[in-house]
Computed example of a mutant assay.
Amino acid sequence: MLKQIPEYLKDWRLHGIVLLIVLLAESIGPFSFEVGAGMILILPMIYAFILGVAAVFTPVIKEKQFKHSEILTTALIGLLVAKVSLNIGPALSMIVQVGPAILLQEIGNLGTVLLGLPLALLLGVKREAIGMTFSIAREGSLAIINDKFGFNSPETRGVFSIYLFGSIFGAVFFGLTASFLATFTPLNPLALAMASGVGSASMMAASSGSLSAVYPEMAAEIQSLASASMILSVATGFFVSIFIALPLAEKMYNLFTSRKSNKEVETNEQTEEKKEANQ
């Protein structure tokens, strides 16, 4: 019977290390501290990531554990897709009631592609830029990229890097931005509350918390709209990422890199011609 069990499921060393890391991370719990009007929230996931990286440099982790962890991670991301789907289903009726406004809000998030991808390429980032810029890189984005490109792809490395960066600094950015817009612009606080729901619970909480501090008399409405917007963004964002944002990011990457390659070829040809002329 045991012979029929896949080797990666019998890797008790890997399972034991993962269990120990999870227990340590959960025992520490979340940690937060304020930065101006924003707040930095350190989740147990960050501790788990650091402990996992540290474990790689110990003799406990061998090449076999690397191979088995890749298989298990791919399988577990399938469960993540199922979890995201469970959140999307109940929100479909709400999406129909809200109408096109929420869809237009989600399409506005394409700014991550239109602005972020060219900047990433200017900074010298390669195909990682696709994973880094096609969304704000939350859980659903991890599932989409891993399913299309595979766990060891540069696109997956890109989306994981932004996922971790956003988990640490995203809430701070949203909290400070919401506070600034509420204080120095004439934008309606309820519109800002709707904009808080980009699909991340921590970012939404930081943004709506800052807005509630500026407009305490509207705190209940702000929290309600922000929460509803977040649920809808998770649902609509999944489809926008698959059918619009990711294809757009790939096409833009191919367009920019092909132009760069053509310029390099032209430059090399001109250099060769000058050398021949000088000879």
Rank of each mutant, 00 (worst) to 15 (best):
Q4A: 14
D11L: 01
D11S: 03
W12D: 05
W12N: 07
W12F: 10
H15C: 08
G16N: 05
V18K: 00
E26H: 12
P30T: 06
P30W: 01
F31T: 14
V35E: 02
V35Q: 04
A37S: 13
M39W: 08
M39N: 13
M39P: 11
I46P: 09
G52W: 03
A54S: 14
V60W: 06
F66M: 09
I71W: 05
I71T: 14
L72C: 07
T73R: 00
T73S: 02
T74Y: 03
L76D: 00
L80I: 08
A82E: 03
N87F: 13
V96S: 11
V96R: 07
Q97H: 09
V98L: 11
A101V: 15
Q105L: 06
E106V: 15
E106T: 11
G108T: 02
G108D: 06
N109H: 11
N109F: 11
L110D: 07
L110I: 14
V113K: 00
L114S: 12
L115N: 10
G116V: 13
L117Q: 00
L121V: 12
L122K: 15
V125H: 12
E128S: 06
A129M: 05
F134E: 03
S135I: 08
I136Y: 09
A137R: 06
G140I: 15
L142Y: 00
I145L: 07
I145M: 07
F149G: 13
F149T: 12
F151Y: 04
N152D: 11
S153F: 10
E155F: 13
R157A: 13
S161E: 09
S161D: 09
Y163D: 05
Y163C: 12
Y163I: 11
F165R: 05
S167N: 06
I168Q: 03
G175W: 01
T177Q: 05
S179T: 09
L181K: 00
N188T: 12
N188H: 11
M194A: 15
M194V: 15
A195E: 00
S196T: 11
G197C: 06
G197H: 01
G199Y: 00
M203T: 12
M204I: 01
M204N: 02
A205Y: 01
S207E: 03
L211E: 04
S212F: 03
V214Y: 10
E217S: 14
E221Y: 13
A226P: 11
S227H: 10
S229E: 05
I231C: 09
I231M: 09
F239V: 08
V240E: 04
V240A: 10
I242F: 04
I242T: 11
E250S: 07
K251W: 04
Y253C: 07
F256T: 04
S258N: 00
R259Y: 05
K260Q: 08
K263T: 12
V265N: 03
T267K: 14
Q270E: 14
E276T: 15
A277W: 08
